[in-house]
Design a protein around this nucleic acid. Structure first.
Lengths: 108, 108
DNA sequence: CCAATATACAACCGAATGGTTGTAGATTGT
DNA sequence: ACAATCTACAACCATTCGGTTGTATATTGG
């Protein structure tokens, strides 16, 4: 896998490795929400939530759109699909092992 | 999602958020490898690699089997599938939004 | 039995993470 | 114009992370 893909993978998985961020992602996948709206849902400071949103944005899992003084966040389902496809690639490696074993059995 | 699932998700995504660990996972998905064998592949101490293996093991992405003085590590494809299904659930949330929009359009 | 091998784990260290408070810049409504 | 609102970001702090070295414990081969 290319270096750039590894960096993307680092960012993706790191962003997903926090339950507050996963929860934020669920909300913004269901529909647009301003940062203030999101922050109201959690027992932590606005700044903390804003940082979580920024992590998700840097990872490309979420995009923001300005609307007046609000910043409306939206989940990016395409990015989520690309994380899923990384896992599929891991599965393919495993299938390769099985295929190898099958080949050995058939050869035997 | 239940508390226990969130903990599993934390462990899964955290384990996957490091490229050395993802690489180890690829190797042990392809076939069994001892910790020493794995350690030989990376430019870091044996102890560092052993810790990475331990993180993957705690997350349930890898299992070990003793063989003499060696510990043979093997990737668990079922665990990987369950990470993928967590992403599928996120996708479902997004589909719910689309379904909602479609409904609105049809109503309108 | 004993030396070599394979693993595990503790203690430590610098950097990153997840949280805080405080400050400052846009934008809006009156 | 100006007070209120929404957001961004810096500085700080405790904890976790990813690495190190060193030590201890099994297991094996000769």
């Amino acid at each position: 896998m290319a270096e750039q893909d590894e960096e993307r993978a680092d960012a993706f998985f790191h962003a997903l490795a926090d339950r507050t961020r996963r929860d934020i992602l669920r909300r913004v996948l269901a529909g647009e929400h301003s940062v203030t709206e999101l922050a109201a849902s959690y027992d932590m400071s606005f700044a903390a939530v804003q940082k979580h949103v920024a992590v998700l944005e840097r990872a490309g899992l979420l995009t923001k759109r300005r609307s007046g003084r609000e910043q409306l966040a939206s989940g990016d389902v395409v990015a989520i699909r690309s994380v899923a496809s990384m896992l599929d690639q891991l599965e393919d490696v495993w299938r390769g092992r099985i295929a190898g074993i099958d080949a050995l059995i058939k050869e035997g």
